[in-house]
Each structure stands twice: as structure tokens, then as C-alpha cells.
């Protein structure tokens, strides 16, 4: 474990806490893409298949449980809770995310570390996580105004994988045979997708203005 990876995991955890805060404190999920949340639930379910078979550390197991339960709780709440469900932007959260799932699955069948169920699904979860934010970014562009908690949620979510890139550079430099090309390249693509959001977030912060994404 290195400081970059720990910072990345904490930033990821904070993004989930900010989202839970927004939904439970405001009893609203306006501005949140249910499709992105469903993709994240799928990412964690397919990535942490080794939860019960390979024990790495208490920290690792705990974090996996937190990520799986929180992502399922958010999807369940956005679909099930009548008060929250009413605030869901159903008519603008229309990105066809099934194509993302299909594309990532085909790619995982072609590009993986080993052709086993666990490794193919792991590669699938890495590719899917890289593109899972697209429905959310599309929804924010369509909805125009972004409330503070939603903006912070997306900001922390984008920042976490940037810390992981620093972690991979650090491990590549300090560990003999550390190569994790699938995660590294996907992580670069994932972070690049946030580039324009980071830019508009910085501009709005500098001008102390409301965050607006151009349509």
C-alpha cells in the first residue's frame, strides 16, 4: 500500500459518502444518473468475485464490502424509495448504457490477463468502470445546472482514479515486475473523460460561479 493508492481509495470513499449525503439529506437524486449507478454496481460485483476466496487484508475486504453495499443501496434507493424516485431525471437520463456493457464485455473477451471467468470479468469491470461515468456526464450537460453535492461527487470520483495513476507509476518504479497494463490504460481513459468536467469545475470555482457544463 502506498500513499497514492490510499489517497485514491479515500477519495473514492468520500465520493460515495457525498452521494449518499446528497440523496439522504436532500431526499433527492436529481442530477444523478441511475444508469451510471447501475454500471458501478455491476463494476463492483464483477470485480470483487474474489471477496470470499482470496483474503488480502482486512482493509481490502472491508472496502470491497463498502463499495458493493453502497452501490447497491444507491441503486435500490433510486429505484425503490418513492420520495427519491420521484426526483429522478428519468426523461434526460436516457444514455443507452447497455451498449457500454456489451462493448466492455466483448473487449474483455478479447483483452484479458488469463482466459478464466474471474479474470475476464475482472477485465470487464476495469473497462466498464472507465466508461461508467458517461451517462452521468451526459445527464449533467443536458440538465445544465449542477448542484454543489453532485458536482463534488463527480469531482472526487474523477480524482480517485488520478491518484491510482500516480500509484501505478510509483509501483512501476519501485516494484520489480509490476505491470498492470489493462488497469493503467483504462485508468488513463477514465481520468481523461473527466478532463472537461475538471476544467469547468475549476473555472466555476475560480469565478465563484455556479457550475455549468456547456450543452
Amino acid at each position: 500500500m502506498n500513499i497514492f493508492r490510499f489517497a485514491g481509495d479515500m477519495t473514492h470513499l468520500i465520493s460515495i459518502l457525498v452521494l449518499l449525503l446528497k440523496i439522504y439529506a436532500t431526499k433527492s437524486c436529481s442530477g444523478i444518473s441511475l444508469k451510471t449507478q447501475e454500471l458501478y454496481a455491476l463494476v463492483f460485483l464483477t470485480r470483487y468475485l474474489d471477496l470470499f476466496t482470496d483474503f488480502i487484508s482486512l482493509y481490502n475486504t472491508l472496502m470491497k464490502l463498502v463499495f458493493i453495499t453502497s452501490s447497491l443501496a444507491i441503486v435500490w434507493c433510486m429505484r425503490g424509495d418513492p420520495a427519491v424516485r420521484r426526483t429522478y431525471d428519468k426523461e434526460i437520463d436516457t444514455f443507452r448504457h447497455y451498449f457500454l456493457v456489451l462493448g466492455c464485455f466483448v473487449l474483455a473477451l478479447l483483452l484479458h490477463e488469463k482466459f478464466t471467468v474471474q479474470e475476464v470479468l475482472w477485465a470487464f469491470s476495469i473497462y466498464l468502470e472507465a466508461v461508467a461515468i458517461i451517462p452521468q456526464l451526459v445527464l449533467l450537460q443536458r440538465s445544465g445546472n449542477v448542484d454543489n453535492l453532485t458536482g463534488q461527487y463527480v469531482l472526487f470520483l474523477g480524482a480517485y482514479r488520478a491518484f491510482y495513476i500516480l500509484n501505478w507509476i510509483y509501483r512501476y518504479l519501485t516494484e520489480a515486475r509490476f505491470t498492470r497494463w489493462i488497469a493503467c490504460i483504462s485508468g488513463l481513459v477514465q481520468t481523461a473523460l473527466y478532463a472537461d468536467f475538471f476544467y469547468y469545475y475549476f473555472i466555476s470555482w475560480k469565478n465563484n460561479a455556479k457550475l455549468k457544463l456547456p450543452a
Partner: peptide, 10 residues
């Protein structure tokens, strides 16, 4: 970590 010790990250 799989048998080959990989995948220790979240």
C-alpha cells in the same frame, strides 16, 4: 490476491 499474487488493489 489470486494464486499468482496479483489483484491486490480495489
Amino acid at each position: 490476491a489470486r494464486r499468482d499474487g496479483s489483484k491486490d488493489e480495489l
